[in-house]
Amino acid sequence: MFDWGAPIRNLDLLMQGLVVTLQVATLSFVFAFALGLVGALARRSHFWPLRFVATVYVEVIRNTPVLLQIFVIFFGLPSVGIRFDAVTAGIIALSVNSGAYLTEIIRAGIQSISRGQIEAAIALGLTPAQIFGRVVFPQALRNIYPPVVNQFIMVLLGSSLLSAIAVPDLTGNALVVNSRTYRTVEVFTFVTLVYAGLTLTASGLLNLLGRLLFPRATAR
């Protein structure tokens, strides 16, 4: 009754989807991290309008569904004349979404650095930029590495939602293969296992990288 050859015969299409998934997730994550860094600095700014904008950004994004955010950018913005293709819209939505979570993660990381570290750096005559770049941020990065890795996995899994706006990612192409072969269980089982393998590999590799980058941080 089962035909497990169906996903294998359409491997090329599924692998194309996998490549799109990886590209979209990686690009979104890079943008999201940049956004998160800016957001975290803004939330710690002494200039209150900046703090306010950042807080509104974080709270609005974290308390509404990412699918809605995707729809707003892809279906909503064209009504005011801003148009993106599906992949671009998807990357923007995922970046903006994940950026809000990363803002909070990075902010907590910066906050975890003790006041004494900053005072010591001031006493040594470092400039504010040097203090942040050389003392605070490297230590914060070590503290936040595990949740940041987790966030990357979330982006990877969340990118499957872009199939709803017809992005040809792994999930999108799985739907195509499904409608071609009508081998629903076989195709979806295969794709689910590909995702599970992907996330396990990604988190394994990234944790390994973490252990190399921050020898003591992951000893906990």
């Binding site: 899994l157 709803a164 995702y195 996330t199």
Partner: peptide, 10 residues
């Protein structure tokens, strides 16, 4: 390890 959407389709 897999997307909720995939599980929903399944």
């Amino acid at each position: 390890g897999s997307p909720l959407l995939m599980q929903l389709f399944f």
